[in-house]
Computed example of a mutant assay.
Amino acid sequence: MVFVPSGKFEKGSNLYPEESPIYTTTVSEFWMDETEVTNDEFAKFVFETGYQTEAERKLNSNSVEENFEIFKPGAVVFQNPSYESKINSTSEWWSYVPGANWRHPDGPNSSIEGKGSFPVVAVSYQDAISYAKWKGNTLPTEVEWEWAASNASREEANTWQGEFPFTDEGNDGFIGLAPVGCYAKNKFGLYDMIGNVWEYTSDLWNIENTSDKLKYHTIKGGSYLCSPNFCKRYRATARQPQEDQLASNHIGFRTIVRNYFNSDKKNERKNYDVKTN
């Protein structure tokens, strides 16, 4: 883990409505995973605990939108549309794919074999919390995450080059996901704080429509799907809501520890009781 010192900074931006207002805030020191949690790290958690992710279990009938095949375990997967498709037809870019999960992030015929150093994706908020608790850690707040990413730049990240959503030219060295740690560290010594995959935070996202019974948390930092022509969210201030139970192949996470030297991480991990439903 990497030490992130306390500090004071301006959070937010005026680029997108959901990123405002801009305000000054302070952050206490903490320790943060140097990289996004990888497939190998998550696999160790699953092996030692027998944990089953939400994308591998049957979903509740009220947990996702009605047009999804909700009775089959799976995750949301990005799929390149054809040039004939209308650019605003996002339904052709994203599909709920039964059989997609962290072991098969692009669908049942995909695999993470040979990709142990890639960030784990197709995990839900609860999956991320469960892993963090097993480690004796927790997820960062949105403020902590944004402070840790505050000097990240697109030049040091895996993003989309080319015309989104049709062609990723891979000018940054990768098409799609990249292994963790392939780009320069930021000032705190952290890799991939923007781009590659969105990352969960512990902050709830308030939904103004009170008829929406679903629960959302805030994700930060953009992903390999962010591009200049469509989604300029490869920035520390970027933020979006993500439904808690709906895993996706462009969202991952990293963990933090507060009061690192006063925490008994060994005992916290030993006493963790895995719950899978």
Results as ranks from 00 to 15, higher is better:
residue 85 S to A: 15
residue 29 E to L: 00
residue 68 F to L: 02
residue 36 E to V: 13
residue 13 S to T: 15
residue 90 T to E: 13
residue 48 E to L: 13
residue 99 G to H: 05
residue 91 S to E: 15
residue 86 K to H: 14
residue 40 D to M: 10
residue 64 V to Y: 09
residue 87 I to K: 14
residue 56 E to S: 03
residue 60 N to W: 08
residue 71 F to E: 12
residue 93 W to P: 01
residue 66 E to P: 00
residue 88 N to R: 07
residue 87 I to P: 03
residue 34 E to I: 12
residue 33 D to M: 05
residue 37 V to H: 04
residue 68 F to Q: 01
residue 61 S to D: 08
residue 65 E to R: 08
residue 22 I to V: 15
residue 71 F to L: 03
residue 79 Q to T: 14
residue 41 E to A: 13
residue 86 K to T: 10
residue 31 W to T: 00
residue 48 E to Q: 04
residue 28 S to E: 14
residue 100 A to V: 06
residue 25 T to Y: 05
residue 46 V to A: 01
residue 19 E to Q: 12
residue 23 Y to E: 12
residue 101 N to H: 10
residue 29 E to F: 04
residue 68 F to S: 01
residue 35 T to Y: 12
residue 29 E to G: 02
residue 35 T to G: 02
residue 44 K to Q: 06
residue 19 E to H: 08
residue 52 Q to D: 04
residue 75 A to D: 08
residue 99 G to K: 04
residue 54 E to G: 01
residue 57 R to K: 03
residue 34 E to P: 07
residue 16 Y to A: 04
residue 79 Q to K: 13
residue 38 T to C: 06
residue 95 S to G: 06
residue 19 E to A: 07
residue 94 W to P: 02
residue 97 V to C: 08
residue 39 N to K: 02
residue 14 N to S: 08
residue 31 W to Q: 01
residue 50 G to D: 01
residue 100 A to E: 10
residue 66 E to S: 10
residue 13 S to I: 15
residue 62 N to S: 14
residue 52 Q to V: 14
residue 31 W to Y: 11
residue 93 W to A: 06
residue 50 G to Y: 01
residue 80 N to W: 11
residue 16 Y to Q: 06
residue 44 K to S: 05
residue 32 M to I: 11
residue 82 S to R: 07
residue 82 S to D: 11
residue 32 M to D: 06
residue 71 F to D: 12
residue 78 F to N: 09
residue 72 K to S: 09
residue 97 V to F: 08
residue 58 K to P: 00
residue 21 P to K: 11
residue 29 E to Q: 07
residue 13 S to D: 15
residue 32 M to L: 12
residue 49 T to L: 07
residue 24 T to V: 11
residue 56 E to M: 06
residue 56 E to G: 01
